[in-house]
Amino acid sequence: MYRLFLIAVLLCITISGFANRRKIYLDDRARFPMPPIEVFVDDRLLEMNIQENIGMINVFIKDTYGNVVFNTSVEGKVGSIPMELELKKGTYIIFIDCQNDRLCGSFSIE
């Protein structure tokens, strides 16, 4: 009985931890096929899932006024890359530069 209760509690915690995770849909700004990157965001974390090695990736986020509020460079290797965000409520635009591609997408923090 206690084991079943423990499993139910852990399942609720796990589900609530991923409840705010939203996918950011990226628009390709080049004439090449989209690179294999998926980007997800919640209120505190940006996560990039990369399916193949694509070299150096530059990521920056701008607010609605055009101010850069986040800027970093990471090695684009296969796997998941989490990045801690400290963004306030609002709408943002993410830009991802890799190889000859420039991707962008918008998202909101609530």
Rank of each mutant, 00 (worst) to 15 (best):
T72C: 05
I15P: 00
V39Q: 01
V68Y: 08
R31V: 10
S16P: 02
R3K: 14
F70I: 06
D28T: 06
P35F: 05
V69L: 12
R22N: 14
V69K: 11
D101N: 15
E86G: 12
I61P: 01
N20W: 03
K88W: 10
E84M: 05
S106K: 15
S16Q: 07
M83D: 04
T64M: 15
I96W: 04
E110C: 07
F40V: 06
D63V: 01
Q99C: 06
V78S: 14
F5E: 13
M48F: 01
F107I: 02
I24D: 01
R29F: 09
M1G: 15
I54T: 03
L4S: 13
V68D: 03
C98W: 01
L45H: 09
G66L: 04
V9T: 12
I13Q: 12
G17H: 05
F18I: 12
G66C: 02
S108P: 01
T64H: 12
V59K: 04
P35C: 09
I81T: 10
L11P: 02
I15D: 11
K89F: 08
R29I: 06
I50Y: 00
F32S: 10
R3D: 15
N20K: 12
I37D: 04
E38K: 14
V39R: 00
D101V: 02
Y2A: 14
K62T: 13
F60L: 10
D43E: 12
V78L: 13
I24Y: 02
E47N: 06
M83I: 01
D42I: 01
E110P: 11
N20Y: 07
S73D: 03
V41T: 03
M83W: 02
I57L: 05
P35W: 07
G79I: 00
K89A: 11
M83K: 06
Q99T: 05
R21G: 09
S80P: 02
I109F: 08
S106F: 11
N49W: 08
Q99Y: 10
C104E: 13
E86K: 15
L26R: 00
K88Q: 13
I109D: 06
L11S: 08
I15V: 11
T91W: 07
I37V: 09
R31C: 08
K88P: 05
M34K: 08
E75N: 14
F95M: 07
A19H: 05
E84C: 04
K89E: 14
R22L: 08
A19I: 03
N67F: 13
I109Y: 06
L26Q: 00
G105F: 00
T72K: 06
T14D: 10
F32Q: 15
D101L: 09
